[in-house]
């Protein structure tokens, strides 16, 4: 049985890891290669680098960050942020990334997912979806709208329909962020997770809202997520990866032990 994955997410700006809330109050949080190596030692199952620079210089810097990281850590590495062409995907993969996460560019040009999957395989292509609950009359079933541009622009697309479409186009995984829950530490939007995970056969990575270990467990059980993306609860030292994994293991969830093979 596949282990539930714990995936630290590192926001990268100009070659440095930053932490903050939704692109504001950013603080320097160190060198990406060092942070990656730290989380690798801590027992992370995979890492995500999110380039929040989104500029031409940022791209070159990101390729360099990926190259250095891949030379020293030996777990899967996903990269996202401003990736809008198959050629750029290829450059990042050639530099040592294992997966590419697309978001805004795929909303503008869904063929990007199909072309990326055809060239590199579905296992390489993650589609990130930022979704916000749509206010409806009380009692009506919930709906979620997809936002682009880092959550700034509504697209009019329904999140469930978009998830189904990206899977058909060839996405291998969906990284699903609830914009309502993100940054609150009040827990994931479990209904959103369960709705998307129930609509597609590919793994869903839960993101946004984790504040307690119980929240992570809920995302992986009731929310049917295959993995959880963790940022602030790790970066601010609320919990270590070992604490997260021990908690989930006690709940009976399959996790890769931090001391994987050492007796």
């Amino acid at each position: 049985m596949l282990a539930k994955r714990i995936i630290p997410c590192l926001d990268v700006l100009g070659g440095r890891v930053v932490k903050g809330t939704r692109f504001v109050n950013l603080q320097d949080a160190g060198d990406p290669v060092e942070r990656a190596a730290f989380y690798d030692r801590e027992g992370a199952d995979e890492l995500v680098f999110l380039d929040i620079t989104a500029s031409a210089e940022g791209r070159r810097t990101m390729i360099e960050v990926v190259r250095k990281t891949a030379a020293s850590i030996f777990i899967p590495l996903a990269v996202g942020g401003g990736i809008d062409s198959v050629d750029f995907m290829g450059e990042l993969l050639q530099s040592g990334a294992d997966k590419i996460s697309v978001n805004t560019a795929a909303l503008a040009n869904p063929a990007l997912i199909r072309d990326g999957a055809a060239r590199f395989g579905s296992q390489c292509i993650v589609t990130a979806i930022d979704a916000r609950r749509v206010e409806e009359r009380p009692g009506s079933p919930p709906r979620w709208e997809v936002y682009s541009h880092g959550g700034r622009r509504p697209t009019g697309r329904d999140a469930i329909a978009w998830a189904v479409e990206v899977e058909k186009l060839g996405a291998g995984e969906i990284l699903l962020t609830s914009m309502d829950a993100d940054g609150t530490r009040d827990g994931y939007d479990i209904a959103l997770l369960a709705a998307v995970a129930g609509a597609v056969p590919i793994p869903v990575i839960a993101s946004g809202g984790a504040g307690t270990l119980e929240h992570l467990s809920q995302a992986l059980t009731i929310g049917k997520a295959h993995a959880v993306l963790v940022a602030s609860i790790l970066h601010y030292g609320l919990y270590s990866i070992a604490e997260i994994k021990n908690f989930l293991a006690e709940k009976g969830l399959p996790v890769r032990p931090v001391s994987n093979y050492i007796t």
């Binding site: 282990a3 579905s122 590919i202 295959h226």
Partner: peptide, 21 residues
């Protein structure tokens, strides 16, 4: 679901130096 992607357990069918330790 395919591809089978992620961390899974590997159980040696017999003792072998490739899996030493």
């Amino acid at each position: 679901p395919v591809p089978h992607v992620g961390w899974n357990r590997v159980s040696p069918a017999r003792s072998h130096p490739l899996f030493a330790g």
